[in-house]
Nucleic acid binder design. Structure first.
Lengths: 221, 221
DNA sequence: GATAGTTTCATACAACTGTTTGAATTGCAA
DNA sequence: TTGCAATTCAAACAGTTGTATGAAACTATC
């Protein structure tokens, strides 16, 4: 196993560079220069460029998922096996938002890397994301227990919308700030989380308001 | 100007190939082969590969934006300058969702191309997206008129969440179908639109429920 | 039907990519 | 110290990419 120094240096350099400049224009040669190691070291230690990216992403994903499940478990135990829907949603979107938003100067390379991964979506990462379904199922289960009289379809839509708001806000944070001329404060992460959770909760608990929107749309035609 | 035949063939071929296989692994050589034209034709007619992609995206974007504004204008005129918020949101997310969802076999190459553009986010497209802010401002204005007692911040967040739900549903449609085991029917586009509009409307009109979610989160800590 | 301008074509170019190779070096165990 | 495996290194490889070139083929105008 030896000192592992080279491996670690490559991982750190790659994370930093990808975070700063995106996957598109960072080459292996950039990475090894930043890490002060030889070009061949990447293939020696990781097998290929894609496996390097995958390892970076998996490491961070596992950390996020663990954090999510920790929050979920705590909430369910506190409620005797049934957590309030707000806390479930909080566990779902909180860790990601907390990791990716917040004051720029205190955003870690890891966080910035995950933002990039969310924006650019390169093949090795997409392959991993597809395996995330099992993880989401655990949340769907908890939500079903919290809202036993909602249909599965509504549960899944609520889950989808919660993730939508969280991820889109991260992806398009720059645009939202520009559009709102700074009025939307994305540095206040807990406020952002509260907004997402609040809206998702309404989506999951409100009556069938859709019909009204639908009727209006029909009238307009 | 002449017959324009080559130009058109390239555009059509590029759109089809990008739609099917993504920007990542479609080369100029693939495109010219599909279009049955010479390799140099792309640079002759478009200047560069990026300009070709940009032209494709701009064309489709303009069409979508025109459709959006048409719906918005109709709604505002019908309401004497102030449209109900549901119709504004419907005008905002309807055209995109209608263009990108629906039964797969009747999804046009144009629609599939826009889905790709939304998923992969390649540099020339990102540059154009950044110029979309002015367009969104028009919707923010209409929303402000519809909900005069909401703060600007709430308006922008509502706008952000509406777009979030629409775009994320398109981007991750495959995953949502898998996760829900087909229970979420993305072919019923009008139902999807109604759901998005409904939730966004709640987000924009409901009282400050956030405080409850926030308190719960605080308690859990 | 000659001319000028546009469009097509085959081909070459130049640069960059991730990966491989095989020798040199290092570190550790016997 | 010797021997052996793990690691590092410079160099080259093989493939692909978008773009440029200059001659050839058109097309329309007079």
């Amino acid at each position: 196993m030896a000192s592992d120094h080279t491996r670690t240096a490559i991982l750190a350099a790659a994370e930093r560079l990808y975070a700063d400049r995106g996957f598109g224009d960072v080459t292996l040669r950039d990475i090894v220069a930043e890490a002060n190691v030889n070009l061949a070291a990447v293939n020696y230690h990781f097998g290929s460029k894609d496996e390097l990216i995958a390892e970076l992403f998996v490491t961070r994903s596992i950390a996020t998922n663990r954090e999510r499940l920790r929050e979920l478990k705590a909430a369910e135990e506190q409620g005797g096996g049934r957590a309030p829907i707000e806390l479930i949603l909080h566990a779902l979107v909180g860790p990601t938002l907390r990791g990716c938003l917040g004051p720029e100067n205190q955003r870690s390379a890891a966080a910035r890397f995950m933002i990039r991964a969310s924006i650019e979506s390169v093949p090795p990462i997409r392959r991993i994301k597809n395996r995330e379904i099992d993880h989401l199922r655990k949340f769907a289960g908890a939500m079903r227990r919290a809202l036993p009289d909602r249909s599965d379809v509504d549960i899944y839509w609520g889950l989808n919308f919660a993730l939508a708001m969280a991820h889109h806000t991260i992806r398009e944070s720059e645009r939202l700030i520009k559009l709102s001329e700074g009025k939307c404060d994305l540095d206040d992460v807990e406020d952002v989380i509260a907004r997402v959770v609040s809206v998702a909760t309404m989506a999951l608990t409100a009556g069938k308001v859709e019909t009204k929107a639908r009727a209006l749309a029909r009238d307009a035609r």
